[in-house]
C-alpha cells in the first residue's frame, strides 16, 4: 500500500475518498461553475445600471458594491457544502444509516469528513474562478492589503463553513420525522441566504432589520466577513464576530447531538 495512507486515520480516508469520488464528476462540477458565472454577471449588470444613476448608495460606492459581489461570491461558495441536507436525509429514509450504525465509528464525524472532502475538491475550482474574476474586474474592485484583516476574514470563513455545515446536518436530520424534507430545506436555504446578506448588502435595509439579522448566525457567515474586508468593521469587531460564531457553533453542536439521539431512538423503533 502507498506509504501516505498508513498514517491516515479513518476520517481522513473518508475525506480523501469523497474528493476522489467527486473527480469522477469533473464535468458536472465544471458545469456548476458555469452557472455561477452567470449568477455573478447578472448581479454585476444590475448594480452597474443602478450606479449609472447614483455614485453612492447607503454608504456603498460602486467599487465597494462590486467587491461585495465578487468577494462575496467567493465566500459563499467556499463555505458551501453542496446539498448536504439531502445526503443526510437519504441515509436516513433509505435506511443506509444502518450500515453506519453497525461500524465502530461516528456518523456525525463521518459526515463532517465527507463534507471536508467535498469542499477541498470544490475549492480548487472556486479559487481558480475567483482569481480570474479578480483579474477581469480589477479596475472596479477594492483590494485589502492588511494581513491581519485578511487573516480574520479567513478565520470567519472557516467557522462560517462549519456553521453552514451544522445547519445542513440539522435540516437533514429532520428526516427522522419527515419523509420528504426537500421543501423544508429549499425555504431554509433561501431565508438563510437572505439573512446572510448574500442577495444584497444588509445595510440597504432599515437599521432595525440589520439589528434583527444579527440575532441569527447567518449574517456572520457572509455579511460580516465582507464588511471586514471592505474596512467597514474594525479588527476588534472582527474578533468579536469570531467569538459569536464560536458560540453559535457550540450551540448548534449541542442541538445536533440532542436531535441525533432523539432521532436515533425513533429510527430504532421504526426499523427502517
Amino acid at each position: 500500500m502507498r506509504l501516505s495512507e498508513i498514517s491516515m486515520n479513518k476520517y481522513a480516508t473518508i475525506t480523501k475518498n469523497e474528493s476522489q469520488r467527486l473527480m469522477a464528476y469533473r464535468a458536472n462540477i465544471a458545469a456548476h461553475s458555469f452557472g455561477h458565472l452567470f449568477e455573478i454577471m447578472s448581479q454585476v449588470i444590475v448594480w452597474s445600471v443602478i450606479y449609472s444613476k447614483a455614485t453612492i448608495l447607503n454608504g456603498y460606492t460602486f467599487q465597494q458594491m462590486m467587491t461585495y459581489v465578487i468577494v462575496g461570491w467567493f465566500i459563499l461558495f467556499a463555505t458551501s457544502n453542496y446539498g448536504f441536507e439531502d445526503k443526510v436525509a437519504k441515509d436516513i429514509h433509505q435506511g443506509t444509516l444502518s450500515n453506519f450504525l453497525v461500524k465502530p465509528f461516528s456518523y456525525l464525524r463521518y459526515m463532517t469528513a465527507i463534507s471536508i472532502g467535498r469542499i477541498s475538491f470544490a475549492m480548487v475550482v472556486v479559487v481558480s474562478l475567483e482569481v480570474i474574476l479578480l483579474w477581469f474586474m480589477r479596475a472596479n474592485l477594492i483590494f485589502n492589503n492588511s494581513v491581519a484583516h485578511l487573516l480574520i476574514v479567513l478565520l470567519l470563513m472557516f467557522f462560517a463553513y462549519f456553521i453552514r455545515l451544522f445547519f445542513s446536518i440539522l435540516v437533514g436530520l429532520a428526516s427522522f420525522w419527515f419523509v420528504d424534507i426537500s421543501g423544508f430545506y429549499y425555504s431554509f436555504n433561501i431565508i438563510s441566504k437572505f439573512l446572510s446578506g448574500a442577495f444584497f448588502p444588509l445595510s440597504l435595509l432599515p437599521a432595525a432589520f440589520v439589528k434583527t439579522s444579527m440575532w441569527f448566525p447567518f449574517a456572520y457567515t457572509f455579511f460580516v466577513p465582507i464588511q471586514l474586508y471592505l474596512g467597514k468593521l474594525t479588527l476588534s469587531q472582527g474578533l468579536q464576530a469570531v467569538a459569536i460564531q464560536l458560540a453559535w457553533l457550540l450551540g448548534l453542536y449541542g442541538i445536533i447531538k440532542i436531535v441525533w439521539y432523539r432521532g436515533l431512538r425513533k429510527y430504532e423503533s421504526a426499523g427502517i
Binding site: M1, E5, M8, N9, K10, T13, I14, N17, Q20, R21, A24, Y25, G95, T96, S98, N99, K103, P104, F105
Partner: peptide, 24 residues
C-alpha cells in the same frame, strides 16, 4: 445486507476496503 450496499458507488472497491481497514 443483500439489498443495501456499503461500498462507495463511484470508487473502485479497493477504496472502500482501505476505508474499512481504517474504520476497523
Amino acid at each position: 445486507m443483500g439489498q443495501k450496499n456499503q461500498l462507495w458507488w463511484d470508487l473502485p472497491a479497493m477504496e472502500s476496503f482501505i476505508l474499512n481497514k481504517e474504520i476497523y
